[in-house]
């Protein structure tokens, strides 16, 4: 299957002017499954004051531009993350916090936790650490803003173009027809 890369899908022309406004007003939806959620309140409130960058928490996926995955994802919550991601409106970005969405972290051998989030939805930026401190999170946000300015943060376009590939990966973990521990794997 031919996959479209970032280079092919880069923003051009008028989009680049709009990107200036988009990077300065990132509204985020934090999906609080894992322990990373605990690092976000200090990032948002007066100690580290995320609002300086025009960022703020939003209540629903429709209003948000940025989806934060804060920690490990079990198969059940992966399904909800995919629903949430698909409800968000373009342009939209995903940031994965912590080592769990990158390689499974301490849950790497669990039967019910996915190891690599980027296989199922396009992740624009991963912030490693267990858990990353607020400084690291803000560093990550600034990096994402630079990516948006350069027109390289095009995860949502990748998801549209390579939908078949993502769907195939999603189905491979979400559509099991037999009990996980029965030992009858094909």
């Amino acid at each position: 299957m031919e996959l479209y890369s970032t280079k092919k899908l880069k923003d051009e022309g008028f989009e680049q002017i709009l990107n200036f406004f988009r990077k300065k007003s990132l509204w985020m939806l934090h999906y609080c499954t894992g322990c990373g959620a605990v690092e976000l309140p200090p990032t948002m409130t007066s100690r580290w004051d995320m609002e300086r960058f025009g960022m703020g928490p939003m209540a629903t996926p429709r209003q948000a531009d940025l989806l934060l995955i804060t920690g490990y994802l079990s198969l059940k919550s992966l399904k909800r993350v995919i629903y949430t991601y698909e409800q968000m409106q373009n342009p939209k970005w995903v940031i994965a916090l912590g080592s769990c969405p990158i390689n499974g972290g301490i849950y790497y051998d669990s039967y019910s936790v996915i190891n690599r989030l980027a296989l199922y939805i396009p992740v624009d930026l991963s912030i490693e650490g267990c858990m990353p401190r607020p400084e690291a999170i803000i560093e990550g946000f600034i990096k994402l803003m630079k990516q948006i300015e350069n027109g390289e943060a095009v995860g949502y376009k990748k998801y549209q173009e390579n939908y078949k590939w993502y769907k195939q990966n999603q189905d491979s973990v979400l559509k099991r027809e037999f009990p996980v521990l029965s030992g009858e794997e094909k």
């Binding site: 406004f21 300065k24 409130t45 609002e51 531009d65 373009n90 342009p91």
Partner: peptide, 23 residues
């Protein structure tokens, strides 16, 4: 709240961004 928030023209940026999004 003893913090600083964005620039005073932040709302204009927000509105332009909102109109540039798909809906």
């Amino acid at each position: 709240r003893r913090c600083y928030a964005g620039p005073f023209y932040q709302s204009f940026i927000d509105v332009i961004k909102l109109f540039s999004k798909h809906s």
